[in-house]
Design a protein around this nucleic acid. Structure first.
Lengths: 118, 118
DNA sequence: GCCATATATATGATTTTTCATATAAATAGG
DNA sequence: CCTATTTATATGAAAAATCATATATATGGC
């Protein structure tokens, strides 16, 4: 990963907000990002696949859901850039975070699909 | 300037290398960047104008040359992002810097247009 | 079969590049 | 001083390339 590749990856609103939300929440599935960003499922899925291919995100399948998180091996300078951006993104993240909180049933937290068995 | 705008500005090879070279050298004119990046003059000029319009660069005309420098009022988080990128860009900057050094007569240094009178 | 996710194709939109030309300043010759 | 001529830079317009989105289809787990 060279700087030019990172900046291209972060130069799209959907990808930037997705990665900042994932950074803040630790892990999010596709359907949560679809709700948070009020976008279509194929659109979100395609951008997440792009970030995964680049090595910025790692994914984990849990039943019907695929959860994305920051790739554990991210170099320090990449984390630095993302931290600088995150510190300036309160306005951009407020509404997506509100929609995330407002989700009736979120996978893997509170009332998730497997109930108290998980 | 929001993070998305900065990342879009840095997501082009010509713009990224231009701004990193300017950061390292302090100030460069258009013709020096044309040589360093081995690109066409209109191409360089357009990208510099874009960076100036965005507030990332400031320009100064000195005779026939126009010198570009980092805008003095750049916010700290922008400088942080650029510093993280610069620290990873030795490979990308090596050849452009070599071409810069190899320029027969560089404006405002060594043998410039006004000779020893300046 | 249903739900969540992924992929393929086509299309629209934006970005980037090039070409030609314009402005502006220094230089040389009369 | 006046008028080419050269060098440096900028810009309008068009072509070319890239990117993003939508639609439709496919896969995989329950």
């Amino acid at each position: 990963m060279i700087p030019l590749e990172l900046f291209k990856a972060l130069a799209d609103e959907t990808r930037l907000l997705s990665i900042l939300l994932i950074q803040q929440e630790g892990e999010l599935c596709v359907c949560e990002l679809v709700t948070a960003l009020a976008s279509s499922q194929p659109k979100i899925s395609r951008h997440l696949a792009q970030l995964r291919t680049l090595g910025l995100l790692a994914d984990r399948r849990q039943g019907q859901w695929v959860f994305y998180r920051l790739h554990p091996d991210l170099p320090g300078w990449v984390r630095e850039v993302m931290a600088s951006a995150a510190a300036q993104s309160d306005m951009q993240l407020a509404q997506p975070l509100a929609r995330l909180e407002a989700m009736a049933s979120r996978p893997a937290v509170g009332g998730n699909a497997c109930g108290s068995a998980c």
